[in-house]
């Protein structure tokens, strides 16, 4: 009897150390496993919720689903074919938006409302695996169950497409999805970023559109070393994690346009100086242009209530 068995007998100090290390490793692993157990909604969460597909379409455009899940460069009707495709380059690797069309195999056509709720608000797939927060479930966590179910009803009316989802291309440690559970413990929250008690009804409407649906903060709030949003710098702007240049701050410290100018920009893409939005923001404008004017006005009113933080 030699080798591992001899060590396992552990008569000396080395053996004690190894047993201690193995024990600590198992305990640590167990703690990791418990901490990263996916949190999901109770099965009853979607019971009795009545879907409104018309409201679902508003949620669809406000949430910007097509910007990532339609083929890049899609225009017109093609924007409604949600076969996936947009590549998001990040310091952790390249994420590719999956097929969320009504196809029962390649897409989400076979999902229940409850499974869809878990994906949208908890970032957990029907198989119980974590999604990566490149998918902004961290924002959608603030959505009402009614809006989630209504969105699903609208998505079910869109074309099915059998194109399989493309895999992500990530650096090794980030391929272990279980680790996202720890990230969620640190960053997944349904608390409003702008939590002032005296928001008007319109400002609160804008907050819901901006924080829960429009997920402005996913780009406009800077991220820390773990890729989590820096709460104290909500919408303050910062370096572009997907490439060159910076993402502008949109707190009142930077964005000095009037509410009417902001609302106009969100509809036409024109700044007060008649430059026009480019890159991803042009996508955002195309989506927000489909909302009712009052919704864009509400977003503008909300932005004026964001605590000013210099970039």
């Amino acid at each position: 009897m030699t080798g591992p068995v001899g060590i396992a007998k552990g008569t000396g100090m080395l053996g004690t150390l190894i047993r201690w290390a193995v024990g600590a490793g198992i305990a640590g692993g167990a703690a990791f496993w418990v901490l990263t157990d996916p949190v999901t909604a109770p099965a009853s969460a979607t019971e009795g919720i009545v879907a409104d597909p018309a409201r679902g379409e508003v949620v669809f455009w406000a949430g910007g689903c097509a910007s990532c899940h339609a083929a890049p460069e899609a225009t017109g009707e093609a924007k409604l074919v949600l076969a996936g495709g947009r590549a998001l380059e990040t310091p952790f690797g390249t994420f590719r938006a999956p097929n969320i069309s009504a196809d029962p195999e390649a897409g989400i056509g076979a999902w229940t409302d409850h499974q869809f709720l878990n994906a949208m608000r908890h970032g957990v797939s029907p198989e119980g695996a974590f999604y990566y927060p490149a998918f902004p479930y961290t924002s959608y966590a603030k959505m009402t169950v009614e809006d989630v179910v209504s969105l699903r009803a609208f998505l079910a009316t869109l074309p099915a497409d059998a194109t399989p989802s493309q895999p992500h291309d990530l650096a090794l440690p980030f391929r272990l999805r279980r680790g996202v559970g720890l990230w969620n413990l640190m960053y997944l929250s349904s608390t409003w970023a702008v939590d002032a008690p005296d928001l008007t009804e319109v400002e609160a409407q804008g907050r819901y559109l901006a924080e829960a649906l429009g997920h402005c903060g996913e780009c406009h709030t800077p991220r820390d070393a773990f890729g989590g949003p820096v709460a104290a710098r909500h919408l303050a702007g910062g370096p572009n994690p997907s490439g060159e240049g910076t993402i502008p701050g949109i707190t009142p410290a930077t964005l000095t346009w009037t509410e009417a100018e902001i609302a106009g920009y969100l509809m036409t893409g024109f700044t007060p100086e008649f430059d026009s939005a480019g890159g991803h923001m042009a996508d955002v404008v195309q989506n927000l242009a489909r909302l009712a004017p009052g919704d864009r006005d509400a977003i503008a009113a909300y932005l004026k209530r964001v605590p000013p933080v210099a970039p």
């Binding site: 490439g243 240049g245 993402i247 502008p248 036409t268 893409g269 939005a277 480019g278 195309q286």
Partner: peptide
């Protein structure tokens, strides 16, 4: 017509400008 013109500006800036 301004709406269509804004769309024309935006379609080029979306694809060919970083932001």
């Amino acid at each position: 017509a301004m709406g269509a013109l804004g769309g024309a500006c935006g379609s080029c800036h979306q694809a060919y400008r970083s932001r």
